[in-house]
Amino acid sequence: MSDAALPHAFQYESARHQARTAIAGMWLFLASEVLFFGVLFLSWIVCRHWNQAGFDAGARQTALAIGTLNTVILITSSAFYTAGVAFIEASNTRRLIQCCALAWVLGLAFLILKFGIEWHEDLARHLFPGPRFAITGELRTGAQLFFVFYFVATALHGLHLLAGLGLVGWIIRRAGRGEFSAQYSTPVAVVGLYWSFVDMVWIVLFPLIYLIGRGP
């Protein structure tokens, strides 16, 4: 099938033109997202600078095991998705669907671990900032601030992941209808960029939450 014959929206010259444009759009969106999360990380670091001891006390309360497991899960999920992109570039739709399904399930596993188990425990242990906050004494202020960041950041990351699950699900459905091929796989690539970005955010969050200041 020649390139020019592929269907494309009327404002583009060709399908290739359209594909490149879509990918450029996603990159720009991610640039915007970088600044969105960047502010969070920056404020985090500023506040930690002022309340180091408290932040470290907070960090010691986090569930390192779940965090590490979740990191592994997300990275694996991204790897599967990337493999899927490679498969569809070879027009292998069946493999694409399998990879995406794995990526999707892993994403869901992350959400369950994070919100079903970890958050649940955190809340039960009164780690949510407020009058009933568990850590008392001098480190209370700093530790509470730490958990402000913890909850805001993980909630926002979770929402992004949830949106990602929707997108990956959408890719699976369309792939199931046989819409993608080596000639036309733009949505797969675009969603892939987004999926990896959500992964990257976590990779910054992981040390901020679990590692820095945890001490021996």
Partner: peptide, 17 residues
């Protein structure tokens, strides 16, 4: 967040700035 939960990063009495 700070407005709803009365604790957060901009509150000087609670370590914020």
């Amino acid at each position: 967040f700070e407005r709803i939960f009365h604790i957060g990063v901009f509150d000087p009495t609670l370590g914020g700035d």
